[in-house]
Design a protein around this nucleic acid. Structure first.
Lengths: 164, 164
DNA sequence: CTATAACTTGAAGTCGACTCCAAGTCAAGG
DNA sequence: CCTTGACTTGGAGTCGACTTCAAGTTATAG
């Protein structure tokens, strides 16, 4: 096993796509644990740290604020999540939030497609989109942040107004 | 046709989920056109304005910065997009970016599911995820912001380290 | 007639997430 | 020995997107 390989902050930045400054910033706000140092004070990172930084990058892409990542990071590092009901709940709830996001995004894609197709097929777009059920599914949480078909009616509306 | 119905800023805020302050802010930065006023100076909104605000809310959910929305808003209001190659390109390129986002999010969901299932089935997770091809597809643009399977290896890694 | 509510304005403040800066240390090369 | 490069630190600055504030106007209700 070559788990002992270490990396400079520069290498770490390159491997994760997160800048050196940002990595230091994450350490400063204790999102990352204080990195080990060499004798000269330079930070050293191992594969484990790189995985953690990648996890942060990944969660960031799902729109999670840094503060909300803390439980994921602290618990995950030294724990099998299946043994921590708290983490399991976090994972589940974040999963649901991501599923909602996907539904919203998929709707935007659908409506962009509709808009793009309009010139060609000119089909009337007043039916209830089937993507709708995606919105109803999942969580009973008060999450009013979903894209409703109404919200996207702009696209079809404007076309109707000027082309009908 | 009852297209003449007007709304106060408060009603508009309620209908769109965007606060009054934020609506005024959008007008201030000219993301929204200056709203009509009543004699007393109060803003009035029509269905069209509400649609536009909903579009902003919708694009916001896809992570688009306000500045990038301008072309969508200005062109869409008075135009059939199929006649504006520029807008068509914007739509296409934003579509691709959303598709990438969906792929990233789907990966996070997959890995959360894996993590959640680990305790039960304990299956080895070292196969190349098929969601991978979603990442390769679309745009030749320099968009290095996608989630690679490696980035999510954190989840499976930590489990392997402690349970294998 | 007063006061409450719903608005108006311009400006200032906040917050998250960086991003940059100045001053300093250390190791290696010419 | 001096410079170059890769790092260190604390702190300040930036930027996007609001959010709050203070002061003022107008309409309605008691």
């Amino acid at each position: 096993m070559k788990e002992k390989q270490t990396f400079t902050i520069k290498q770490t930045a390159e491997q994760t796509g997160i800048t050196e400054d940002t990595i230091r910033y994450y350490e400063k706000i204790a999102l990352l644990p204080r990195a080990e140092r060499k004798d000269n004070g330079h930070r050293i990172y191992r594969q484990e740290s790189i995985d953690t930084i990648r996890l942060i990058a990944c969660l960031k892409k799902t729109g999670m604020p840094l503060e909300e990542m803390r439980p994921f990071l602290t618990v995950s590092v030294d724990t099998d999540p299946a043994e921590y009901p708290e983490l399991v709940e976090l994972l589940k709830s974040h999963r649901e939030s991501i599923v909602s996001q996907i539904a919203s995004l998929q709707q935007v894609v659908d409506f962009i497609d509709m808009k793009l197709e309009e010139g060609k097929y000119r089909r009337d777009c007043s039916d209830e989109s089937p993507g709708n059920e995606l919105l109803e599914k999942g969580m009973g949480e008060p999450e009013p942040k979903l894209v409703s078909p109404m919200e996207m009616s702009f696209f079809s509306k404007s076309a109707k107004l000027y082309k009908q």
